[in-house]
């Protein structure tokens, strides 16, 4: 899987604000069909790195290339066909309906499509995100988790509409499951893997380490603005690294049936024992 040429490659990225390096010397490849998961403690620079990769922020140092082009040289509308981004929080200023919010994903990117095709894309995305029954509701009356699923539907719309223009796409999800219940967390991450299986490069910022090791093809660990380890999850994580990064006593184990790694916090128990 790592044989495929990267869709996006970042080299030696840096970003400074207020004299502090929020991201430094970050290098990263996103490959088609591969799910990359970015983990790290609060303030490690995960969201800043994501903003550098999506073009929202322009960093210092090296650069980001998508295909053969520098990220900064790609106009916004074509970039929107190449990649979709789901941000951490999205608040809405006016009472749009759920359908209208999801439709924002195809309005710009899918301009060349017929109206029937655009409406079909929106309906499919709403169904895939499990919010089709909420389509007529006002976005602001939804719960936080439902709003997050609507935003996911919007991102799915954008990807689907962009497929008619760009073959190699990227999906960025910044803590997409923060407000979701377990069932919807797994459904969303399953959907992300399904999209990756179609050849899209997926990058997800996650806090749940067990979900991260379960869903990642490629795991990236950040701490204090730097990428300190990356690779396949089973080879990347060990107890020392986890203790160093997350400042919590953790021990990595293996689940009996599929041989997947999993983690249990040890601190609480060791305190009890002591």
């Amino acid at each position: 899987m790592s044989e495929a040429a990267p869709v996006l490659s970042a080299r030696n990225l840096g970003f400074h604000a207020g004299g502090r390096a929020l991201v430094a010397e970050a290098s990263l490849d996103l490959r088609p069909g591969s799910t990359t998961i970015l983990i790290g403690p609060n303030g490690a620079g995960k969201s800043t790195l994501l903003k550098l990769l999506t073009g929202e922020l322009a960093g210092s140092g090296g650069g980001v290339r998508i295909g053969d082009e520098a990220l900064g040289a790609i106009p916004a509308w074509r970039l929107a066909c190449l990649r979709a981004v789901m941000a951490q929080h999205s608040r809405l200023a006016f009472p749009f309906s759920v359908y209208e919010v999801a439709r924002l994903g195809v309005d710009g990117v899918g301009r060349a499509l017929t109206r029937q095709r655009r409406e079909a894309i929106v309906a499919e995305a709403l169904a895939a995100a499990g919010v089709l029954d909420l389509a007529a509701r006002r976005y602001q009356t939804l719960s936080g988790g439902e709003q997050q699923r609507v935003q996911f539907a919007r991102v799915l719309c954008q990807l689907e509409a962009g497929r008619s223009v760009a073959e190699r796409q990227i999906l960025f999800l910044d803590e997409p499951i923060a407000s979701l219940d377990l069932c919807h967390q797994l459904a969303l991450l399953d959907m992300a893997r399904t999209i990756a299986a179609r050849g899209v490069a997926v990058l997800v910022v996650l806090h749940d380490l067990n979900l991260a090791v379960t869903y990642a093809d490629h795991l990236v660990v950040m701490d204090r603005g730097r990428i300190i380890a990356q690779g396949p999850p089973a080879e990347t994580l060990d107890d020392a690294l986890l203790r160093q990064v997350f400042r919590v006593g953790l021990s990595l184990s293996r689940a009996p049936a599929p041989g997947l790694p999993f983690l249990l916090p040890q601190q609480h128990r060791s305190r009890q024992a002591g």
Partner: peptide
């Protein structure tokens, strides 16, 4: 319409 989501989201949607 895109700006209703925020400036960053509007940019991600390809809006100048």
């Amino acid at each position: 319409n895109g700006l209703m989501l925020g400036e960053a989201e509007a940019y991600h949607l390809g809006i100048p």
